[in-house]
Simulated scan of single mutants.
Amino acid sequence: MTDTPRARPLSPHLQVWRWHITMWTSILHRMTGVALYAGALILAGWAIALAAGPEVYGAYKAILGSPLGKLVMFGLTLSLFYHLANGIRHLVWDAGHGLDVKSANASAVAAFAFAAAATIAVWLIAAMTGAL
Protein backbone atom coordinates (compact mmCIF):
# COMPACT_ATOMS: atom_id res chain seq x y z
CA MET A 1 0.00 0.00 0.00
CA THR A 2 1.18 3.49 -0.77
CA ASP A 3 0.99 6.50 1.47
CA THR A 4 -0.28 8.80 -1.29
CA PRO A 5 -3.86 9.87 -0.68
CA ARG A 6 -6.32 9.19 -3.46
CA ALA A 7 -7.85 12.17 -5.19
CA ARG A 8 -11.30 12.75 -3.79
CA PRO A 9 -14.13 13.46 -6.19
CA LEU A 10 -15.22 17.06 -6.34
CA SER A 11 -18.83 17.89 -5.61
CA PRO A 12 -20.60 20.14 -8.08
CA HIS A 13 -20.59 23.69 -6.81
CA LEU A 14 -21.60 27.13 -8.02
CA GLN A 15 -18.52 27.36 -10.22
CA VAL A 16 -19.50 24.14 -11.99
CA TRP A 17 -23.23 24.53 -12.42
CA ARG A 18 -24.72 26.82 -15.02
CA TRP A 19 -26.98 29.30 -13.25
CA HIS A 20 -30.63 28.85 -14.10
CA ILE A 21 -33.87 30.38 -12.92
CA THR A 22 -34.80 27.61 -10.52
CA MET A 23 -31.50 28.11 -8.68
CA TRP A 24 -32.39 31.78 -8.29
CA THR A 25 -35.85 30.96 -7.00
CA SER A 26 -34.44 28.59 -4.40
CA ILE A 27 -31.85 31.07 -3.16
CA LEU A 28 -34.31 33.98 -3.15
CA HIS A 29 -36.91 31.90 -1.31
CA ARG A 30 -34.45 31.43 1.53
CA MET A 31 -33.38 35.08 1.46
CA THR A 32 -36.96 36.37 1.52
CA GLY A 33 -37.71 34.05 4.43
CA VAL A 34 -34.90 35.70 6.39
CA ALA A 35 -36.15 39.15 5.34
CA LEU A 36 -39.62 38.28 6.60
CA TYR A 37 -38.14 37.45 10.01
CA ALA A 38 -36.67 40.96 10.05
CA GLY A 39 -40.08 42.26 9.01
CA ALA A 40 -41.64 40.47 11.97
CA LEU A 41 -39.21 42.30 14.26
CA ILE A 42 -40.18 45.61 12.64
CA LEU A 43 -43.85 44.74 13.18
CA ALA A 44 -43.16 43.86 16.81
CA GLY A 45 -41.33 47.17 17.21
CA TRP A 46 -44.36 48.95 15.76
CA ALA A 47 -46.66 47.25 18.30
CA ILE A 48 -44.32 48.13 21.17
CA ALA A 49 -44.11 51.74 19.99
CA LEU A 50 -47.90 51.88 19.74
CA ALA A 51 -48.22 50.62 23.31
CA ALA A 52 -45.51 53.00 24.57
CA GLY A 53 -47.48 56.12 23.79
CA PRO A 54 -47.94 58.84 21.19
CA GLU A 55 -44.39 60.25 21.37
CA VAL A 56 -42.67 56.91 20.85
CA TYR A 57 -45.19 55.90 18.19
CA GLY A 58 -44.68 59.20 16.35
CA ALA A 59 -40.91 58.69 16.34
CA TYR A 60 -41.28 55.10 15.08
CA LYS A 61 -43.71 56.24 12.41
CA ALA A 62 -41.24 58.92 11.34
CA ILE A 63 -38.52 56.30 10.95
CA LEU A 64 -40.77 54.05 8.87
CA GLY A 65 -41.91 57.07 6.83
CA SER A 66 -38.37 58.16 5.98
CA PRO A 67 -36.99 57.33 2.53
CA LEU A 68 -34.89 54.50 3.98
CA GLY A 69 -37.89 53.20 5.94
CA LYS A 70 -40.04 53.23 2.82
CA LEU A 71 -37.34 51.38 0.90
CA VAL A 72 -37.21 48.72 3.61
CA MET A 73 -41.01 48.44 3.62
CA PHE A 74 -41.03 48.15 -0.18
CA GLY A 75 -38.46 45.36 0.06
CA LEU A 76 -40.53 43.60 2.71
CA THR A 77 -43.63 43.87 0.54
CA LEU A 78 -41.73 42.36 -2.39
CA SER A 79 -40.34 39.64 -0.11
CA LEU A 80 -43.79 38.80 1.21
CA PHE A 81 -45.35 38.43 -2.23
CA TYR A 82 -42.40 36.50 -3.65
CA HIS A 83 -42.28 34.14 -0.68
CA LEU A 84 -46.04 33.60 -0.98
CA ALA A 85 -45.87 32.85 -4.71
CA ASN A 86 -42.90 30.53 -4.37
CA GLY A 87 -44.54 28.78 -1.43
CA ILE A 88 -47.62 28.08 -3.56
CA ARG A 89 -45.27 26.81 -6.27
CA HIS A 90 -43.79 24.38 -3.75
CA LEU A 91 -47.25 23.21 -2.71
CA VAL A 92 -48.02 22.41 -6.34
CA TRP A 93 -44.75 20.49 -6.55
CA ASP A 94 -45.62 18.61 -3.36
CA ALA A 95 -48.80 17.46 -5.12
CA GLY A 96 -46.57 16.01 -7.86
CA HIS A 97 -47.34 18.58 -10.56
CA GLY A 98 -45.07 20.93 -12.48
CA LEU A 99 -41.84 19.09 -11.82
CA ASP A 100 -40.64 18.93 -15.42
CA VAL A 101 -38.06 21.53 -16.46
CA LYS A 102 -40.39 23.53 -18.70
CA SER A 103 -43.11 23.80 -16.03
CA ALA A 104 -40.61 24.58 -13.27
CA ASN A 105 -39.09 27.40 -15.32
CA ALA A 106 -42.53 28.77 -16.23
CA SER A 107 -43.70 28.72 -12.62
CA ALA A 108 -40.47 30.50 -11.58
CA VAL A 109 -41.17 33.29 -14.06
CA ALA A 110 -44.77 33.42 -12.83
CA ALA A 111 -43.60 33.76 -9.20
CA PHE A 112 -41.32 36.67 -10.12
CA ALA A 113 -44.03 38.33 -12.20
CA PHE A 114 -46.66 37.95 -9.47
CA ALA A 115 -44.34 39.36 -6.81
CA ALA A 116 -43.49 42.40 -8.93
CA ALA A 117 -47.09 43.05 -10.03
CA ALA A 118 -48.59 42.61 -6.56
CA THR A 119 -45.94 44.81 -4.93
CA ILE A 120 -46.42 47.59 -7.46
CA ALA A 121 -50.21 47.32 -7.11
CA VAL A 122 -50.10 47.59 -3.32
CA TRP A 123 -47.76 50.58 -3.40
CA LEU A 124 -49.79 52.33 -6.11
CA ILE A 125 -52.97 51.85 -4.10
CA ALA A 126 -51.18 53.13 -0.98
CA ALA A 127 -50.02 56.20 -2.91
CA MET A 128 -53.49 56.87 -4.36
CA THR A 129 -55.17 56.62 -0.95
CA GLY A 130 -52.62 58.91 0.70
CA ALA A 131 -51.06 56.22 2.87
CA LEU A 132 -47.59 57.19 1.72
Rank of each mutant, 00 (worst) to 15 (best):
Asn105Tyr: 09
Leu68Asn: 03
Ala113Leu: 13
Val56Cys: 00
Pro5Gly: 01
Ala110Glu: 05
Met128Glu: 02
Leu76Met: 08
Met1His: 14
Ala38Tyr: 10
Ala111Gly: 03
Arg89Gly: 03
His90Trp: 01
Met73His: 06
Ala51Cys: 09
Gly69Leu: 10
Leu28Asp: 01
Val34Thr: 09
Tyr57Ile: 09
Asn105Arg: 15
Gly65Pro: 02
Tyr37Lys: 07
Val122Phe: 11
Thr4Ala: 14
His97Asn: 07
Tyr60Lys: 01
Val122Ser: 07
Asn105Cys: 09
Ala104Arg: 09
Pro54Tyr: 08
Thr77Val: 10
Ala127Glu: 14
Ile120Val: 11
Leu91Ser: 00
Ala116Arg: 06
Arg89Pro: 05
Leu43Ala: 13
Asp3Ile: 10
Ala49Leu: 02
Arg30Val: 10
Ile48Ala: 15
Ala95Met: 13
Lys70Val: 00
Leu14Met: 14
Ile125Cys: 01
Gly96Leu: 06
Leu99Val: 07
Gly130Asn: 08
Thr2Trp: 12
Ser66Trp: 01
Pro9Cys: 04
Met31Ser: 12
Val34Arg: 02
Val72Pro: 00
Tyr37Phe: 13
Thr119Pro: 08
Ala85Thr: 00
Pro5Met: 03
Ala35Glu: 04
Gly75Asp: 09
Asn105Lys: 15
Glu55Tyr: 05
Ala110Thr: 12
Arg8Asn: 10
Ala113Cys: 12
Gly53Thr: 04
Thr2Arg: 11
Pro54His: 12
His97Asp: 07
Leu68Cys: 02
Leu132Ile: 12
Lys70Gly: 12
Leu132Trp: 10
Tyr60Phe: 15
Leu14Tyr: 15
Val122Asn: 00
Ala113Arg: 06
Ala95Trp: 10
Gly53Glu: 03
Leu132Pro: 01
Ala115Leu: 07
Pro67Ile: 07
Ala59Cys: 01
Thr22Met: 07
Tyr82Lys: 00
Arg6Cys: 13
Gly39Thr: 03
Gly130Met: 08
Thr77Met: 11
His97Ser: 05
Ala117His: 08
Ala51Asp: 06
His13Phe: 11
Thr4Leu: 15
Asp3Val: 09
Gly65Asn: 11
Trp19Asp: 10
Val101Cys: 04
Val109Thr: 13
Val34Phe: 11
Leu76Pro: 08
Leu124Lys: 00
Ala44Ser: 02
Ala49Pro: 02
Ala131Asp: 14
Tyr82Cys: 03
Ala121Arg: 06
Ile42Lys: 01
Pro5Glu: 11
Thr77Arg: 05
Pro12Val: 13
Tyr82Ser: 01
Pro54Thr: 12
Ile21Ser: 05
Ala44Thr: 06
Ala85Ser: 06
Ala52Ile: 02
Ile88Phe: 03
Thr32Asn: 05
Thr22Asn: 10
Lys61Thr: 14
Val16Lys: 11
Met1Glu: 14
Phe74Trp: 11
Val101Gly: 07
Ser79Asn: 03
Val101Asp: 13
Ala127Asn: 08
Gly53Arg: 03
Met1Val: 13
Ser79Gln: 07
Gln15Phe: 12
Gly130His: 10
Ala121Pro: 09
Ile125Pro: 00
Leu36Glu: 04
Leu14Val: 15
Ala104Gln: 04
Lys102Ser: 14
Thr119Gly: 10
Arg18Cys: 07
Ala126Cys: 06
Leu124Phe: 00
Ser79Tyr: 02
Ala47Phe: 12
Ala115Gly: 11
Arg89Ile: 02
Gly75Leu: 10
Arg6Thr: 15
Ala85Tyr: 01
Leu84Arg: 00
Ser103Cys: 05
Tyr37His: 05
Asp3Trp: 05
Ser66Lys: 01
